[in-house]
Design a protein around this nucleic acid. Structure first.
Lengths: 333, 333
DNA sequence: TGACTATCTGAAAGCGCTTTCAAGACAGCC
DNA sequence: GGCTGTCTTGAAAGCGCTTTCAGATAGTCA
């Protein structure tokens, strides 16, 4: 306790507090005495008392759909970097792609007294924003852009459209989509919308049997592609919601005797660490996760500290070209 | 504030507290008035004040070497499950395989007032345990077993030895190891020790040029295997520290014209989601991450609540046999 | 030397809850 | 009707820090 340190150093707790918080205006000898006493006693301030007193918790919350998803972990990791630099702790929670759960987790963090909150995406429980507002803390949404709220993200529809256009430029006409769950997931939805729009712009359509929604993961990708083949004439190219899905689809395609990219071009999302090492290396849309995390962290901290911020930060998503895409019909490439 | 709720409900803050914390002995009408007032006002208790008052923070900390590592994330995820069920929040931090950083992060959590702490492995900064002791909170170490401290883990040496024995049973004599960084990482070290011991028990040795230490990841695995080949007669089988490393090694081996498992049997660690989908599917040591997380969570909560616990929980690690391992010299299998 | 200013420092008042303690209300009993 | 015991309730005292405010001390200048 600060009291013990004060006694040992022969000062008051006020002075202890001043020294430990780096306030100027404490005479050198007293400062040193306090430092030494704190050291000797192994003094660790009580965070709750400090938080209560300063009305600052020095912690920021984040609710992500799935902690086990590489993309979100990378964002959390870089987000935490920034917070740490500013002296804040990250408290992360898992919402599992469920709006009710997300509300519950966010409320939990709000109760804990976080000074700011990061959310993923644009779709939330109707009560969520009201609660955040009542708590009076800043929030930032990531991964997708928004006109209403501060955000750091990219244009999911546009980047997916870019992938579709690239495939069409190569000559593909029958393009399929395998996405993860889209319910309450604006990113997935926007991507499909973007692809459909890009196809429509060139007079093509996204056939319902080529528009597959499955659960995430390699297994999901396999199932998804199997499902797609069951639906009549197969596509010559597919765009997948994640690299894991793309990996699964590639496995299934090969098992069905299709060669990649000869019979089927494949594009993934996220540029996972294994993407360059697949056979063939996977063309994918790279999301600059680290930059999203940094920007979101900087934004939130600036708001907490009352500094001016930009409300919308767009992070670029790049189409990384590798060998899993070629013009259609080039067998044995 | 509770005060507002009290005023609105026409009671004292004491009664508000009693109702909101589910204490019996409040008359039904007052209870309801409080509930309604709290609802109307959207009352959210101030966590800091509560923590200060109860001297319980309702949060548990965890420091892991690398948040982006699948195995740790899975443990954190299941750990959090249990904490959440008991009403606790998880605050996780990243130590990056560095003892100083780990100490810093752990101190940070201690300052925050966590009620318990989870650590990974047996090697820590010399001051760490003293600080935890001074904070007076329970800790549990995961992934490796310990005689001194409460732990939930498995016998890294024994499970790696099992993999080595399996390879020797298949007839392999020249076995190599590619591990991640071993500095300050008892898991990696123990595995290599276990393998060396298993080899020695059968009159074999682990050649220095077959004992490679590299950074984690697919790239690391490639580099590692390249390094191993540079060291003279290549091994007929390798055991890798993670499945990512194994993946990288397989890529490099194939690039060098080696067939797997014909020329080279490969065993990984962790049974990552992609392991069954590699070509050939990867034999690997599966760590029951979810069980480690659950057991660690249960342990810590029991300790916090003053219930009796077992100090050492051993979680089984299983050798999952797939097609990446065969007897040596069977080309074209 | 005395007045005045600039520096330091400690006492004390919160921060918003929980929890103890004592008192009020009321029913049951002799 | 008076007394005891039970059930409810509110006043008030913390929890361990920060921070204000005013007093103490030292330094400066005329």
């Amino acid at each position: 306790m600060a009291r013990d340190v004060a006694r040992r150093a022969g000062v008051s707790t006020a002075t202890v507090s001043r020294v430990l918080n780096g306030f100027a205006g404490v005479r050198a000898d007293k400062r040193e005495a306090v430092m030494r006493a704190a050291q000797d006693l192994g003094f660790v301030a009580n965070g709750a008392a400090r938080a209560l007193s300063t009305r600052r918790f020095m912690a920021v919350g984040a609710v992500v759909p799935n902690i086990e998803n590489e993309a979100f972990v990378r964002v959390l990791s870089s987000f935490q970097d920034r917070l740490r630099q500013a002296g804040y702790t990250l408290v992360a929670a898992n919402a599992g792609y469920d709006l009710e759960d997300e509300l519950r987790e966010a409320t939990f963090l709000l109760e804990r007294g976080v000074d700011g909150l990061m959310l993923v995406g644009d779709i939330h429980h109707p009560d969520l924003h009201a609660r955040i507002a009542r708590a009076g803390i800043p929030m930032v949404q990531t991964f997708s852009l928004s006109r209403e709220r501060p955000c750091v993200g990219f244009d999911n529809a546009a980047s997916a459209a870019r992938a579709a256009n690239y495939l069409m430029d190569l000559g593909h006409r029958r393009i399929g989509v395998i996405s993860g769950l889209r319910k309450d997931n604006d990113r997935g939805g926007a991507r499909v919308t973007g692809i459909a729009a890009a196809l429509a712009a060139r007079g093509l359509g996204l056939a319902p049997e080529h528009d597959i929604e499955i659960s995430y993961g390699i297994g999901g990708g396999r199932d998804g592609f199997r499902q797609m083949l069951a639906g009549g004439e197969p596509p010559t190219a597919i765009i997948c919601g994640t690299d894991q899905i793309a990996f699964g689809a590639m496995i299934e395609a090969r098992a069905r005797g299709l060669s990649i990219p000869g019979d089927l071009s494949v594009i993934g999302h996220n540029d996972s660490d294994f993407a360059p090492f697949l056979d063939p290396p996977l063309t994918t849309i790279r999301i600059h996760s680290a930059e999203i995390g940094h920007a979101a962290g900087d934004h939130l901290i600036a708001r907490i500290q009352g500094k001016p911020v930009v409300r919308l930060t767009e992070i670029d998503a790049a189409l990384i070209l590798r060998a899993s895409t070629t013009p259609p019909g080039r067998r044995g490439t």
